[in-house]
């Protein structure tokens, strides 16, 4: 097999893995947007905040210790215990549920019936607020996150592909586990929304708020539920990203990569978010590999946005944007 083709194969595989993360973040956006019409600018910061909280809990950090020390002249930093990863993840998920409830109770409940742009502005405010709270609670230094996922190059794939093609593929174990986790998460979400009573109610609210109210569905409850799920999805994305490149502010910027994904996939489509994420992941790696050398590289910075721009011009509803049913 030609060398070049094998390289490209490896690039595509790595792109798919990167795309999984984009898809996860985009999924968080789609969930909230579908159910409440809110474009949640804070989705990326939620991933950062969740990852910070997870590290903080695992390391037994005392939240707000900087402020406490500044006020009381104490020297507190750690409780002195370590929480196992799984328990810490469950606790963090709980924190994200509380966060969802607070957001609904103190922000969006007061903004019912407001213009989408106002809701969007509110989420911008929320993003910066949450970023600040995250800093205050857990400190702003870069943190290592290790929840025990396997790291490093997968030897088995390396050896097997080497024996088969004479060229060993380098695939990171972390990417493989991220992909597996993401697949399970998406499957669970689909099962939830298709086959449970609350999932059905969630889709009903997404379709028609008024009608949902009329059958006795509580919009407040559904919105807390949706923000909780989006918070959990953010946590998973935060774990993956944090394990790869440390928990730091740049994590919240992955949200920006989710925007082109949404333009490709459509803002209301869950399959769209997934396929869009994969296309962008593969596309930017492949583009960099094939075209990058000719234009001086660094195409990964802009490829996704240019692709999204093309979509905006030629297919604004995205690949899977929901068809608006017009039949009376």
């Amino acid at each position: 097999m030609p060398e070049q083709f094998l390289f490209a194969m490896e690039v595509i595989l790595n792109g798919l893995m990167a795309g999984v993360l984009y898809a996860l973040v985009a999924l968080g956006f789609v969930l909230i947007f579908k159910a409440s019409g809110i474009f949640n600018y804070a989705q990326g910061v939620m991933a950062l905040f969740a990852a910070l909280t997870l590290v903080g809990i695992m390391d037994g950090q005392i939240p707000f210790s900087h402020i406490i020390n500044a006020i009381f002249g104490t020297e507190l930093h750690h409780f002195g215990w370590h929480v196992p990863a799984l328990l810490a993840i469950i606790l963090t998920a709980g924190v994200m549920v509380v966060f969802a409830w607070l957001v609904q109770r103190y922000i969006f409940r007061h903004l019912v019936n407001q213009e989408p742009i106002i809701l969007f502005m509110a989420t911008i405010g929320l993003a910066y607020f949450l970023e600040g709270v995250g800093d205050l609670m857990w400190g702003s230094d870069i943190k290592k996150l290790d929840v025990g996922l396997p790291q490093g190059i997968n030897d088995w794939i390396d050896v097997t592909t080497f024996e088969a093609f004479g060229y060993g593929f380098f695939i990171d174990n972390l990417d493989i586990s991220a992909t597996i986790v993401a697949v399970f998460l998406v499957a669970a979400l689909i099962m939830f929304s298709q086959y449970t009573k609350q999932g059905r109610a969630l889709r009903a609210v997404a379709d028609d708020h008024q009608a949902a109210l009329s059958v006795g569905i509580s919009l407040n409850f559904i919105w807390v539920l949706v923000w909780s799920i989006a918070g959990f999805v953010a946590l998973v994305a935060g774990i993956m990203w944090g394990a790869k490149s440390g928990v730091q502010f740049s994590l919240s910027l992955i949200a920006l990569k989710a925007l082109p994904v949404l333009m490709l996939g459509g803002f209301t489509s869950i399959p769209g978010a997934i396929v869009g994420g994969l296309i962008i992941g593969v596309g930017e790696k492949l583009f960099e590999f094939l075209i990058g050398p000719m234009v001086g590289g660094a195409t990964e910075n802009w490829f996704a946005y240019v692709l999204a721009l093309l979509f905006l011009v030629f297919r604004p509803q995205g690949l899977f944007g929901e068809k608006i049913i017009e039949r009376v």
Binding site: R203, A204, D207, D208, A212, V215
Partner: peptide
């Protein structure tokens, strides 16, 4: 005010 993207049966079940 049916839920357009839900099936007929799912619509009934939301009741």
């Amino acid at each position: 005010h049916c839920f357009e993207h839900l099936t007929v049966e799912e619509n009934l079940m939301t009741g």
